[in-house]
Design a protein around this nucleic acid. Structure first.
Lengths: 118, 118
DNA sequence: CCGTCATATTGATAACTGTCAATGTTAAAG
DNA sequence: CTTTAACATTGACAGTTATCAATATGACGG
């Protein structure tokens, strides 16, 4: 797979019923759990933070600050990408990553709605 | 049992800097990752959904719908509780669980803020 | 074409996680 | 006190995950 799946036309959380509305279906639960799983690692959170705060970041610029090897960085960017949280574009030899605000908002909405009244 | 009253004293995500603001510290990242980890399991998400939609739920009422054994249910409620997402109260022999809206909102805010300040 | 640089992939390994049977604990009931 | 019901805890096992060394791919500069 030389080309990372950087198309988020279909957000991974497509319809995403909020937690409190109705009962979460098994399929939705698995789908949503996958996304939270991508967020459940300290390295990936700091990675996401770095990318979010800088707008666009090259993979090579993550290795240093995160203190991880190149394969490990590649591994984590892949997971964040597959969760629809970041997208990448290859320019020359460099891979540039940026966050997907829609997806972050979508996930946030799932949580924010998971309450009784509001 | 309509509106669960919450007396959550200290949210687990106490200060929780949003993703996009500054760089996430290692400690904050570990703390936040732990919470997302609690949300990264399909069974726990459906559990949270059940509790959220019913306001208050007994542990015994989770075993059936989730199709898991009693120790497994206990294991998951513990993890959600340690993440500050639910709170429990023992009344007689039954353990009653309710969600902690503040914590859900807090986590949601971390995500929603991780964007280019739209 | 050759060497170099940035990234992806593979393989191996240690650590973590979800699951249940068995057992412990505590509170209501008889 | 004894029994029973609801949860918690422990122990074991299978599946998953994070990590890095080694290697492959692919683009740029000579």
């Amino acid at each position: 797979m030389a080309t990372p799946r950087i198309d988020v036309a279909d957000s991974v959380v497509s319809c995403c019923s909020p937690l409190g509305d109705s009962e979460l279906s098994e399929a939705e639960a698995v789908e949503t759990a996958m996304i939270f799983g991508a967020l459940s690692d300290p390295v990936r959170l700091r990675m996401l933070s770095l990318i979010a705060s800088q707008g666009e970041v090259c993979s090579c610029a993550l290795e240093g600050p995160l203190g991880k090897s190149q394969p490990t960085i590649s591994h984590h960017t892949r997971i964040l990408n597959e969760a629809g949280l970041i997208e990448g574009e290859k320019r020359g030899r460099w891979m540039w990553w940026h966050v997907v605000p829609e997806q972050l908002n979508q996930v946030a909405r799932i949580l924010a709605a998971g309450l009784p009244t509001t």
